[in-house]
Design a protein around this nucleic acid. Structure first.
Lengths: 195, 195
DNA sequence: ACCTGAACACCGTTCAAGT
DNA sequence: ACCTGAACACCGTTCAAGT
């Protein structure tokens, strides 16, 4: 409807994605929704992959914005994971989108820095925080990817996916907790990595 | 080359996948490699999605076969995760393959039962084992998905992905260990889920 | 500066027709 | 039982040409 710009294109592309799913998102279809022809889009966007990149950046950013203030790295990591999970469940085929989207290198670093910044405020080492954050992201992405896959519905017959995902998230965080404790105060009891 | 069958088609499809990547795998291209035309493939396979399903089943099966005998659920889970990780790194675009492959419901249940069977031999509850196994699968799939994504190379500049993935796997398992211990022998010290 | 029509080289899938 | 050619309805992308 409104005038055409990078922003309106991305917004309309996300609408289209949610309505018809990733396989049906084509430049021709998107263009016609904007009252324009496909080649016009190339004026605003380099590529289809780049457009998908902008879409996934948008989703990721809005997910980051929704993480509430927290009072420990554990609860921040958990809130981040849950926010990511719900964002990926709201946007159709989100995991697949992420996997084919071409995001510029600078944005990847930027996002990582933002997240690490949040965690570092609790006194965590920045490198460790980076790996922690990544582990949460990967696990959540894995869950929502599989849930959105064709076999997702079958998975739901084996377990309650929502609960299993949230339990797995808690478990992962508990693991990081153990790892951190065993580094600062070495315990005689059996902890991580010695089986 | 050899005669054409479901098996040879899937095998050649995997070769093609590794050579040209998922985006370039087309029925026409695959058929021409087999000395045949695209419509012929429909005699052996229902669909492109079904073909991708057979391909991902093959990969998964060979990954399961490579898990060595272990003497604890922890080490089995770790070996399983590592085997999955290397399988997914060997087969190009494997994670994306999994996400669009249509696998029959029975096979999903079968695979889950197989894995749970392995874990149950260490005395684990079958439901718990199922969720544990799934958490490992999801996390590993997440890692290899992101590494194969267009931004994968950028990720590698932030951290050593191989090491980070294996560390995350260990951490997840450590988390399950804590969870199990705190259930059987409740401890006064802070463990999972109470932050 | 922005948009278009026409074209190129592809797709997955169907189906009547061949052997 | 197995394979084909021809067709259908699409793709992403390029580019000369328009305003």
């Amino acid at each position: 409807m409104a005038e055409i710009s990078r922003r309106t294109i991305v917004a309309e592309a996300l609408n289209l994605l949610n309505e018809v799913g990733l396989d049906e998102v084509s430049l021709r279809r998107l263009a016609s929704r904007l009252g324009v022809k496909a080649p016009s889009l190339y004026w605003y966007v380099e590529d289809k992959a780049a457009l998908l990149g902008l879409m996934s950046e948008t989703v990721f950013q809005s997910c980051l914005d929704r993480v509430p203030p927290c009072d420990s790295w554990q609860s921040w990591l958990r809130a981040f994971g849950l926010s990511l999970f719900s964002a990926q469940n709201e946007v159709r085929d989100c995991a697949r989108l992420i996997m084919i989207a071409s995001v510029p290198a600078e944005r990847v670093v930027e996002v990582n820095d933002t997240i690490v910044g949040h965690l570092a405020r609790f006194g965590l080492d920045r490198d460790l925080a980076s790996r922690m954050q990544a582990s949460v992201q990967m696990m959540i992405t894995g869950w929502s990817a599989c849930r959105a896959a064709p076999f997702g519905p079958w998975l739901d017959k084996i377990m309650v996916v929502n609960e299993a995902a949230s339990e797995a998230l808690d478990t992962l965080i508990a693991g990081w907790e153990v790892r951190l404790l065993s580094e600062t105060s070495p315990l005689p009891t059996s902890t991580a990595a010695n089986y």
